[in-house]
Design a binder for these strands. Structure first.
Length: 746
DNA sequence: TTAATTTGCACCTAC
DNA sequence: TGCAAATTAA
């Protein structure tokens, strides 16, 4: 047995790609052909051949993929792995690895290493402020439009001066102006946005040859996953780093490029061979994931695209079943039919809940699906939607932490200075800003001198000083206590949990849970990285993706967007909402339409065994029912590969009957199925409240959001009666009966 | 200065 | 429909 034994489970093409180490190479790898496997084995092979682990730069698309890859490499290498890997190495996303490099080199860019990372909301706030300060109308110059423009420019590595020079129309000139001011403002706040994490290293490398050489020497081998989704800035970074040794291996599939709206350029993968002379090309066309029929269906879709590289996937897997089309009456119906199919598949093929994924184009589609899963007590998890770290309550606490670490961060200051309410409003802030500006101070230091600002009322002065002292107290404390303790003590002091508890709505209870989860998240992070600082944690949370938090092992059906599903696989895949205007999304043509088609291709190729497609003839959009027509993509699938589901309607009716029966038992009268569209009619509330008196431990109840559950505990009395309810999706919720409006079922 | 109410707009996709 | 900004009342 030797250290290269692991190479035995590669096919000849994969093996060749793994063992060819020197020089530039391009691996064109179709869906399910083992592209991540090649990258993983390649890193392991390099290490086994004696290359130090931390001299390998490996760029993945998500943190999750990076972690999986790291674990896999360790296990491939066995004993050798434990010895040589140590540390976390340089496997990760572009954003997280370059954020790390920027921390180390911040001073060279005029930043300090405790810089804050701004997300889109923070950027938008900043742009709004700049427009307001300049008296530019938000109607004429849309803040989100400008933010979008700035982001696009940064992705293309275009600087404000360059854009200003080429701006002809007034809109562009204003955008260029704001872009330039925005840069200054971020610098003043010691902050960078997401795009800066790629752009700033480029500027650094251009400005300081020595630093560039340092990293060129450090990273002797570069590997890139999902190369088809890199943007111009990423391309330039790679070009710079690989310049001296040219040991760059990129892996990708042009048919799976789905991020052009984020600046990704297919050009990068198309031109790789001419960019890097002497580049070797490998093709992986054997698919190990899907059945023959699924693969043929996928191929029959992608041939409708004109802009693509030549490649056709094949497999030796079973032919499998045809794709099944569910033609549904409404979006609600769609949810029920999907649930029904999940049940059928579980019974028929002995599958588990974790074997299913429901995919959709836009996040809001999860709502109608969620309802069906709730009502039928099928455990599910939604990936995405409002990302955990973007929730208001979490962002509020994060703003405190950011300000504690980076006192120049005026954005965070403005977010929390009056939260909880300290009676500091617009007017006081205007004065404070003016004072800060004329003395070149940050807003936080300015509040420390509030007594010298004559325009501010005494009450507000006192509040500002107090706020300043609060932040400073924690600035001093942060190195003495654990981050999780600090957050606990901070949240206690500002009383955010107390306020939410008093509110006692289901929503506020959920927020409390989120905050608690956040605190335990910090504790976990510290356990994993004992030497880490609060700064490390903050930079980590800024860069986690929705899928990073998703646990494939838990036994629930997964609901997510197709974008989030990239790189994943499931035995059974539902692709829902196949309607014109939704998927493909409205007004897409030519190149954009081709990207929608690639997205559909990605969706279908996630499946191992079975694909269900569905559309609804009528769907709620903007709160109104809208007529929808089937997506053109459905008819692009070769007709012998797809079949209609005929039982469907009958089953959906059965579902409806079950619900009707339930409602009838509750004494809710109805004559037609209009009750279906608003089962929680407010007229019925009085009645619901009366039933609350009859609730006891063991009662089966229904909740508007969580569906059907069982009461396991009741506490308190009168107004404050609470119940602990375990719902079907296995969620345990503590609810205040006054707000929860539980419906007694049994 | 804040709370209450109205209006207006949105529903792409995300590090 | 459902949220967030804008407007108005307190």
């Amino acid at each position: 047995m030797n250290q290269f034994d692991f190479l035995n489970d590669l096919n000849p093409e994969q093996l060749e790609a793994v063992k060819c180490i020197e020089g530039p190479m391009l691996v064109l790898a179709g869906a399910g052909s083992g592209k991540t496997k090649v990258l993983t084995y390649r890193v392991a092979y390099l290490v086994a051949s004696g290359v130090p682990f931390n001299e390998i730069l490996c760029l993945t698309f998500t943190n999750k993929a990076a972690n999986e890859m790291r674990n896999r490499i360790t296990s491939l290498l066995g004993e050798l792995g434990k010895k040589s890997l140590g540390g976390q190495g340089w496997i990760g996303t572009f954003h997280s690895l370059f954020a790390r490099i920027l921390r180390a080199e911040a001073e060279k860019l005029g930043y300090s290493s405790n810089y804050t990372i701004y997300d889109e909301d923070d950027s938008l706030r900043t742009i709004r402020e700049l427009l307001r300060e300049r008296n530019l109308s938000e109607e004429i110059f849309s803040p989100s439009g400008i933010r979008w423009k700035i982001s696009q420019l940064k992705n293309k590595a275009v600087l404000p001066e360059e854009f200003l020079a080429q701006a002809r129309i007034r809109q562009d000139q204003v955008s260029a102006q704001i872009y330039s001011e925005y840069e200054k403002r971020l610098r003043k706040n010691n902050a960078m946005d997401f795009d800066d994490l790629l752009l700033k290293p480029i500027l650094l490398f251009h400005r300081d040859r020595g630093v560039l050489e340092k990293y060129q020497n450090k990273f002797k081998f570069i590997l890139v996953d999902e190369y088809q989704d890199t943007n111009r800035a990423q391309y330039v970074l790679l070009k710079l780093l690989a310049e001296s040794h040219k040991n760059i291996c990129v892996v990708g599939d042009d048919a799976q490029s789905i991020y052009s709206w984020r600046g990704a350029e297919l050009k990068n993968i198309f031109d790789f061979q001419t960019d890097y002379r002497g580049c070797k090309v490998f093709r992986l066309e054997q698919n190990y994931r899907s059945t023959g029929k699924i693969l043929k269906a996928a191929n029959s879709i992608i041939v409708h695209n004109r802009r693509k590289l030549d490649k056709e996937l094949w497999t030796t897997n079973h032919e499998g079943e045809k794709l099944t089309l569910l033609k549904c009456d409404t979006d609600r119906d769609e949810g029920y039919r999907i649930v029904q199919k999940v049940r059928e598949e579980i019974l028929k093929n002995k599958l588990q809940l974790r074997d299913f994924v429901v995919l959709y184009r836009t996040n809001y589609q999860s709502r109608s699906l969620e309802e069906a899963f709730n009502k039928n007590a099928i455990p599910y998890v939604i990936v995405g939607g409002i990302a955990f770290y973007r929730r208001k309550e979490i962002k509020d606490i994060l703003a405190y932490l950011k300000l504690i670490i980076n006192p120049s961060d005026d954005e965070s200051f403005l977010r929390i200075v009056n939260l909880p309410q300290r009676g500091i409003g617009d007017i006081s802030l205007q004065h404070l800003k003016r004072f800060a500006e004329s003395n070149s101070l940050s807003l936080l230091s300015a509040s420390g001198m509030a007594d010298s600002i004559v325009e501010v009322q005494p009450r507000q002065r006192r509040q500002l000083l107090e706020f300043h002292n609060l932040i400073f107290k924690y600035t001093k404390l942060k190195d003495q206590m654990k981050a999780s303790q600090l957050v606990q003590s901070l949240t206690d002091e500002i009383g955010i949990l107390k306020d939410l508890k008093e509110e006692a709505t289901t929503e506020s209870l959920e927020r409390i849970e989120n905050i608690q989860e956040f605190i335990s998240g910090i504790a976990e992070f510290q356990q994993e990285y004992p030497d880490s600082t609060l700064e490390d944690f903050l930079s980590e949370v800024s860069l986690v993706a929705d899928v990073d938090r998703w646990d494939a092992r838990q036994n629930s059906v997964t609901l997510m967007t197709i974008h989030a599903a990239k790189g994943l696989e499931f035995p059974v895949v539902f692709v829902s909402g196949l309607e014109e205007g939704l998927f493909p999304h409205s007004s897409k043509e030519d190149e954009e339409l081709e990207e929608e088609r690639r997205l559909f291709y990605v969706a279908i190729t996630r499946a191992k065994k079975k694909v269900y497609l569905s559309y609804a003839k009528e769907r709620y959009r903007y709160g109104h029912p809208t007529f929808q027509s089937p997506s053109r993509f459905i008819s692009e699938i070769k007709s012998d590969l797809i079949e209609d589901d005929n039982e469907g309607k009958l089953i959906a009716d059965t579902e409806r009957d079950a619900l009707s029966y339930m409602l009838e038992k509750l004494g809710v009268s109805f004559g037609n199925n209009s009750i279906m569209s608003k089962p929680f009619d407010r007229d019925k509330l009085g009645q619901v409240e009366r039933t609350n008196k009859e609730l006891k431990v063991g009662s089966i109840v229904e909740h508007e959001m969580f569906g059907i559950g069982k009461i396991v505990e009741i506490s308190g009395k009168g107004e404050n009666t609470r119940a602990v309810v375990v719902f079907g999706s296995n969620q345990r919720k503590q609810l205040l009966l006054r707000y929860a409006h539980l419906r007694l079922i049994k």
